[in-house]
Amino acid sequence: MSQPESSLPRIYKRPSLLTQLFDIFLIELTNWRWSWRGMLITGTIAPLFSLLALSIFARDSGPYSLSYVLVGNIVFSLLFNTMDNISSHVLFMRRLGMLDYFGTLPIWRPILIFAILLAFLLLALPSLVVMIVLGSLILNLPLHISPLVVLVVPLCAVPLAGIGAIIGSRIRSPQEASAISIVLIFLLSALGPVVIPPERLPSLFNLLGRLSPATYASSALRQVLLGPITGQLAIDIGVLIGFSLILTLIASRLIAWKEQ
């Protein structure tokens, strides 16, 4: 005797990666529909004050040093708006059991990280635009924006999102996550030629900076925002892709959910 059709098990086909990304992206955006204004203000004020403070000391150093001040603070804004926010958000999701909910969905784990990143990156774009425009005016640096900026900006944010997701997946409390994120933000900004030209840094800092994605993000952004574009851009993009793949893979393995 055949079973009723309604009692037969259903086979669900996993949606395409693009569908997964878009759906989780919309879910993430709805989380911030009431708090995006505060995030926008916070993500703009801190880097802008940092830019103003550093510009006082670097103003007599010429356009070369000022270019590091401008782009370094843009990277600082990306660090603040992606790594810190994502670490707190992943921790929040983990403690409330939201990751178990996502485990019931037919999605690929790295898609969750990319969707969270895209949501925060969209919320950070106004801050980045303000930083670029006001920073260039304050420092009197002409912009020569390349179309490659559309590729470089998200690529700079992906490794930072991976670091934030790793922190959020392992740390026990919001206080610890915030403290570790802030320390890493300042370390990544200070190690390597991010805010300060390499000639003014100790050799050890330049050496350690080669291990930091912020160094390559700063170099790539400086070329696509201020020019000129050189062969170093291809190296920067390649290294950022490598950091993105490695850190996203680690984060996706560390994010634990109960698949059902």
Rank of each mutant, 00 (worst) to 15 (best):
S50Q: 10
M131D: 01
M39T: 09
S169M: 03
A58Y: 11
V129D: 02
D100Y: 12
R222G: 15
L40D: 11
T230E: 10
G135D: 03
A58M: 08
R172V: 09
L54T: 06
S127T: 09
A161K: 07
S61F: 08
R109K: 15
Q232W: 03
S218I: 10
D23A: 13
I171T: 14
F49Y: 01
P193N: 03
P154C: 05
R14T: 15
V130S: 00
I116A: 04
M131V: 01
I235R: 09
G238T: 15
T19L: 06
I132H: 04
Q20I: 08
N140E: 13
S16Y: 09
Q3H: 14
I255S: 01
G72V: 08
T215H: 11
L52E: 01
T82Q: 14
G72D: 12
I235T: 13
F243K: 07
F243I: 05
G103E: 04
D84I: 14
I56Q: 04
E176Q: 15
V194P: 00
I167S: 00
G238P: 14
S169P: 02
L21Q: 07
A190E: 00
H89D: 09
N73E: 11
L233S: 02
T248M: 13
L96P: 00
L188N: 02
A157M: 13
W34T: 13
S61C: 01
L91W: 15
A256R: 15
P213C: 11
E259L: 13
A251V: 10
G43M: 12
I171V: 14
A234M: 10
F205E: 03
V149L: 15
L17W: 11
V129M: 11
G231M: 12
P198H: 08
I24M: 10
S173M: 01
G72F: 11
L122F: 14
L201A: 05
A115K: 05
P63Y: 03
D84Y: 13
P174R: 07
L221G: 05
I241P: 00
V158F: 14
G162K: 06
A119D: 09
F102T: 03
K258Y: 05
D100S: 10
L17N: 04
G168V: 09
T82W: 02
L184I: 15
I246F: 14
G43W: 12
A46C: 04
T30D: 07
I196Y: 07
F57W: 11
L187G: 01
V130P: 00
L125T: 13
N81S: 14
V224K: 02
G164E: 05
L151E: 03
G43E: 09
I24A: 07
I171K: 00
I235C: 01
F80V: 00
I255W: 08
Q3G: 06
R33N: 04
L249H: 08
L226A: 04
E259I: 11
E28R: 11
L155E: 09
A256M: 09
I27Y: 15
S65K: 04
V133T: 06
L143Q: 04
P126A: 02
G231Y: 14
G162V: 03
S178D: 13
I237H: 06
Q223I: 07
M93F: 15
